[in-house]
Simulated scan of single mutants.
Amino acid sequence: MNIDKNSVVTLHYEMYDANNQLIDKTEEPIAYLHGGYDGIFPLVEEALQGKAKGDVVEVTLTPDDAFGEQDPEMIRIEPLDVFPVEVEVGMMFEADDPETGDVIIYRITDVADGKAVVDGNHPLAGMRLRFKATVDDVRAATQEELAHGHVHGEHGHHH
């Protein structure tokens, strides 16, 4: 079966930075609903269209195609006394965006002089990436998956 709209695609991927350093890869395959359901980067989905089990695609993603540009307004310096726990570099926490109501995940990127630098940008924001995917399987989506707009079951979403 070839990948087409409303098919469930299971794949393995590797993601590389601009220096060709591996920065992420699947240990277990991931699955997404193909056809504009926002389950994978649009350029990767476009490259996978018509492919079949065993096919490999490589796509170079600009920041706008992947995790966006770094937004300086998403980086803030906060006094340590606003945190309920002692913070360390690498810790992550959630906060509500007062303007949109969305939840933002912040990372602590530096701690010094009684202050912490918190960054709400995605860790890969601003990066050019190379995404290499190998199709593990392709199947028709179930009616329930189509109604919900995502994959259910193994390697997918569970309710």
Rank of each mutant, 00 (worst) to 15 (best):
Val56Pro: 01
Val8Arg: 00
Val8Cys: 00
Ala47Gly: 06
Val8Ala: 00
Val111Ala: 05
Thr142His: 02
Asp119Gly: 10
Ile105Ser: 15
Asp55Asn: 11
Asp71Leu: 09
Gly68Thr: 06
Arg107Val: 15
Glu73Gln: 15
Arg130Met: 02
Tyr16Val: 01
Val151Cys: 04
Glu58Gly: 02
Thr60Asn: 00
Val118Cys: 10
Thr109Cys: 11
Asn2Met: 04
Thr26Gln: 07
Gly90Val: 09
Val57Gly: 02
Asn6His: 00
Val59Lys: 03
Ala66Asn: 06
Glu73Lys: 15
Glu94Gln: 13
Asp17Phe: 03
Phe67Ile: 04
Thr10His: 00
Glu69Ser: 09
Asp96Ser: 08
Asp97Val: 07
Pro72Ser: 13
Tyr106His: 14
Val9Ala: 02
Gly120Pro: 09
Asp137Gly: 01
Asp4Ala: 03
Asp24Met: 08
Ile105His: 12
Tyr13Arg: 08
Gly39Leu: 11
Lys5Tyr: 00
Phe67Gly: 08
Ile30His: 08
Tyr16Asn: 00
Leu129Gln: 03
Arg128Thr: 02
Gly126Ala: 07
Glu86Asn: 08
Ala133Tyr: 00
Thr26Ile: 04
Leu80Lys: 10
Asn2Ile: 09
Glu69Phe: 15
Asp96His: 08
Phe93Glu: 08
Val138Ala: 03
His152Met: 13
Val89Ala: 04
Glu46Gly: 12
Asp24Asn: 10
Arg107Gly: 13
Glu58Leu: 05
Ala52Asp: 03
Leu61Asn: 01
Gly54Leu: 06
Asp102Ile: 05
Tyr106Lys: 14
Ile104Gln: 13
Glu45Tyr: 11
Phe131Glu: 02
Leu48Pro: 09
Ile3Asn: 05
Lys53Cys: 03
Ala66Arg: 02
Pro42Gly: 13
Pro79Ala: 10
Ala95His: 07
Val117Thr: 15
His155Asp: 13
Gly36Pro: 09
Ile23Ser: 04
Thr100Phe: 13
Ile104His: 09
Asp97Ser: 14
Leu129Ile: 09
Ile3Ser: 04
Val57Trp: 02
Gly36His: 11
Gly149Ile: 07
Ile40Pro: 05
Gly153His: 08
Leu61Cys: 01
Asp17His: 02
Glu94Trp: 05
Val138Tyr: 03
Leu48Met: 15
Gly126Pro: 05
Arg107Cys: 14
Asp24Pro: 05
Asp17Glu: 01
Gly153Ser: 07
Lys25Thr: 08
Ala31Phe: 08
Pro98Leu: 07
Tyr32Asn: 07
Arg128Tyr: 04
Ile3Pro: 02
His12Pro: 05
Asp97Arg: 09
Ala116Cys: 11
Ala18Tyr: 07
His34Leu: 11
Ile30Asp: 12
Val44Phe: 10
Val135Ala: 04
Thr60Gln: 03
Thr109Gly: 05
Ala133Trp: 01
Gly39Met: 14
His12Cys: 05
Phe83Tyr: 14
Ile40Gly: 10
Gly54Asn: 10
Val56Gln: 07
Gly90His: 10
Arg107Pro: 12
Ala147Glu: 14
Asn20Trp: 01
Gly153Glu: 09
Pro42Ser: 15
Arg76Ser: 13
Val89Gln: 07
Arg130Ser: 06
Glu144Gly: 02
Tyr13Glu: 06
Val82Pro: 02
Gly50Cys: 08
Glu46His: 11
Lys25Met: 04
Phe93Asp: 10
Thr10Arg: 07
Gly36Ile: 14
Glu45Asp: 14
